[in-house]
Design a protein around this nucleic acid. Sequence first.
DNA 1: AGAATATGCAACCAGGAGGTTGCCGATATG
DNA 2: CATATCGGCAACCTCCTGGTTGCATATTCT
Lengths: 109, 109
Amino acid sequence: MVTSPPMSPDLAPVFAALGDPTRLALIGRLGAGPLSITELADGLPLTRQAVAKHLTVMRGAGLVEQSRAGREARVSLRPEALLAARDHLALAAAQWDSTLDRLKRLAED
Amino acid sequence: MVTSPPMSPDLAPVFAALGDPTRLALIGRLGAGPLSITELADGLPLTRQAVAKHLTVMRGAGLVEQSRAGREARVSLRPEALLAARDHLALAAAQWDSTLDRLKRLAED
DNA sequence: AGAATATGCAACCAGGAGGTTGCCGATATG
DNA sequence: CATATCGGCAACCTCCTGGTTGCATATTCT
C-alpha cells in the first residue's frame, strides 16, 4: 500500500523559486562561486533591483544565502534545499513509477 | 572545470508547475492511480474548473496526461518529467556541492 | 572631505495566475 | 425521451509577481 503523501507542501516555495528562467540563470552563475549582487546582475538584461528581488525569493526558499562584506553583499548557494528537493522528487518519482508500472501490468492482462 | 549552465531553462515550467501546493496535492492524489477531474476536485476546497486549470498547467509541463473515457477524462501521471527534473537537480546539486566544498577548503587555509 | 560604488527601500505599473460563476455540448441513466 | 452528470469554454475579478525608477544610506577610494 502506497499511502504516503509523496511530497510535503513545504517544498512548494523551493520549486516555485526554481520555476523562473531568470532565477535558474542566477543559480547557474552562482555555481562557480559566491558573487556580489551587481556582479550577478551585470550580464543580465535586468536591473540590479530586479535581481535583488529574485534573491529575496530565493533566500526565502533557502536556495541562497547572503552575507555582508563591507559595502557589498556576498551571495552564495545553499545546496541543502536543492538536495532535499531532489530527494523528495526521487522518492515520489520512484513511487509513481512503481504504481504506474503495476497499473500498466494489470492493463496488459 | 565546471563550465556551468547547470540547468536548462526548459525545466522552468516543470518546477513552476510543482511550485504550487494545490498542484502538489493533486499530484499526491494521482499517485494512487488515474482519476477523473471531478474525482480529483472532490475533496478539495476548489471548483472543478480551478482543478481543470491546474491540470492544463501540469499537462503543459508534461507532468500529467489526459485521455477520454466516455464522458469522463482520465488523468494520469507521467513520471518522465519528474525523473528528468530529479536528474538535473541531482547533477546541479553535485556540482555545487563540490564547488562549495572546494571553496570551503580554500577558506579554511 | 568629496566622489564614486554597492546596497536597500518604497512607490508604482502591467500582466499573469488562481479562482469564481454561468453556460453549453456530450454522454450515461431512469 | 428526459434528466442528471462530466467536461470544456469564456468572461470576469483580485492579488501576486516581475520589472521599473527614484532616492537614501553606507562604504571605499583619492
